[in-house]
Nucleic acid binder design. Structure first.
Lengths: 240, 240
DNA sequence: TAGTGGTCTAGACCACATG
DNA sequence: ATGTGGTCTAGACCACTAT
C-alpha cells in the first residue's frame, strides 16, 4: 500500500486550528478554547491537541500562558510589537520608533511587485512611504507595497490617525495578520532623496532589507524595502 | 514552601546529555544511545528522554533520524556545512565557497576582542584573515579571532592543508563545536585594502557582519568580522 | 477553589531503515 | 525480522492564575 500523503493526526488538528484563526473564529488577542475542550471537539486526546498547539506556538501563531489559557498572537501586544524590526542600538535598550508617513497612494502594481505579491499584471496595490524615527532621530525609510483588494479602506488619513505598529493596524482593521517574513539584506549607497530623509550624506552606505511577508495561508501579502542607517545601530540576527 | 530553582525533569536530562556531548562521550557524527537505553540509564520514562532530545534537536545539537537513531550534529555533515553563512546568490542555487587564507598569527588579544571572548587582558589569541571565493569570485573577507589556549596547534600550515568549512576543522581537531552565534550586521564603505581583495572600488558599500559564536556551555569562543559584497548576492534572513 | 497549561508515566501501535 | 524514532492514548499529578 503506497501512502502518498501521510499526515499525522496532530498536524491535521494544527490545520483545523489554523483554519479557525484564518477564518476569524478566534481573533488576535483572544483566548482559544482549552485543550480539554478542543480535544472533545476534535475527538482526539488532550495530548494530541497539545502537540498541535505546540507547533503553532513555536510558529508564533498562538501564545501559551500557564494557568490562563492559550491566546491568539497579535502584533498589538506589547511583547510582539515591532517583532520583525531587527534594528537595534549598539548600546542600550531598544527604543520604540514613531512613524511619519510621507506618501500613500494607489496604483497598478509594477511588474516586480506583482510577481512578488503573486498578483496578476496590472492589479491594484497600495504603496506607502514612511520614515521611522527613534528618539526623534530618523533611521529608517520604508517603502511598503500591499495588495489593493485586501486593504480597501487604507488611506493616508487612516494611517495618520493611527499610532503604533503598522501590522497592528492591518490585523485589527483589515483582518490580515503577518505571520512570517523573509528578508534579503544588502549594502547600498544612499540616493540623494534618501540621504535627505535620513539626514546622511549622499552615497553613505545604507543597509537595505527587502522583505516579503506572508499570512496564515503562506500567501505573500506585503513587499517592503527598508533603508536603515547603521551608524550607532545594527541589524541584529541570531544564527541557529 | 518557596522553590527558587524549579527545573522539570526533562530539562535536567537535557543538561546531562549536554554534559555528555561537551565531555566528548559522544562525538560529532556519532549516534547517541537509543531513547529506551537512555531512559533506563537515567531512570525516567522514554517520554521524558524524548522531550529532552526534542529540545536539543531544535537547538541543533542533535539530529533525529527516524528508523536509524539520534546523532550528534556536526559541521562536517553535508547538510550542515556553512550553516552559519547567510550569503546567497540573488538567482540560482547557493554555491559552496572555497577559502584562501591570507594571514594566521598569534598575538595578545586587543581589548575589544578580549572583552568579547571573555578573556583576561593580554591573553593570547589566534587571528585569521581569509578570503572566500564563490565560483572563483571573491565575495567575502573574514577576520576571525579565537582563544589561543583552546586552539593550540592551529597554524597557517594546518589551515592550508585543509579544505572544507573552518568549523569542521575546529570541531574535529580541537574538540570545540560552535553551537550558536549572534550577528550584528551593518553597511560600511570598503577600505582600500578590502576593495583590493574583493575586487570592488574603494568606498563601495559592503555588508559587515560582526559575529560572536558560542559553544555548548554558552561560552564565546569566536569573534568574527565578515565583509560581504552584496551585488548579485544578499544576506538571507527569516523572521519568525 | 476551580480551571488552565505543564510534566511525567506506561503502554500500544505506526513509519522507517537496515540486515 | 529487528530496532529505531514517531504518534497516540489515558490518566495522574504539579504549577500557575484568577476568583
Amino acid at each position: 500500500m503506497t501512502r502518498v500523503t501521510f499526515s499525522p493526526l496532530y498536524l491535521q488538528i494544527r490545520e483545523r486550528l489554523v483554519q479557525g484563526l484564518q477564518g476569524g473564529e478566534w481573533r488576535p488577542g483572544e483566548a482559544i478554547p482549552s485543550e480539554i475542550e478542543l480535544a472533545a471537539r476534535f475527538g482526539v486526546s488532550q495530548g494530541t491537541v497539545r502537540k498541535a498547539i505546540d507547533v503553532l506556538a513555536t510558529e508564533h501563531m498562538l501564545i501559551r500562558r500557564q494557568g490562563r489559557g492559550t491566546f491568539v498572537a497579535s502584533h498589538l501586544e506589547q511583547r510582539a510589537q515591532y517583532r520583525f524590526l531587527r534594528l537595534r542600538p549598539d548600546e542600550g535598550e531598544p527604543i520604540q520608533p514613531t512613524s511619519r508617513f510621507v506618501e500613500c497612494r494607489r496604483m497598478r502594481a509594477p511588474g516586480e511587485i506583482a510577481r512578488a505579491l503573486e498578483l496578476k499584471a496590472g492589479e491594484g496595490v497600495v504603496m506607502i512611504r514612511r520614515q521611522l524615527q527613534f528618539a526623534s532621530v530618523p533611521l529608517v525609510l520604508d517603502e511598503i507595497w500591499l495588495p489593493g483588494n485586501r486593504f480597501k479602506g487604507l488611506t493616508a488619513e487612516r494611517l495618520n490617525a493611527y499610532s503604533g505598529p503598522l501590522y497592528g493596524l492591518l490585523e485589527a482593521e483589515f483582518g490580515t495578520r503577518m505571520i512570517h517574513a523573509s528578508e534579503r539584506v544588502r549594502a547600498v549607497a544612499a540616493e540623494p532623496q534618501q540621504a535627505e530623509w535620513l539626514d546622511v550624506r549622499t552615497g553613505e552606505p545604507l543597509l537595505l532589507a527587502e522583505r516579503i511577508s506572508t499570512t496564515y495561508t503562506g500567501r505573500p501579502v506585503e513587499v517592503r524595502r527598508g533603508w536603515y542607517v547603521t551608524r550607532g545601530h545594527h541589524y541584529f540576527n541570531e544564527l541557529n
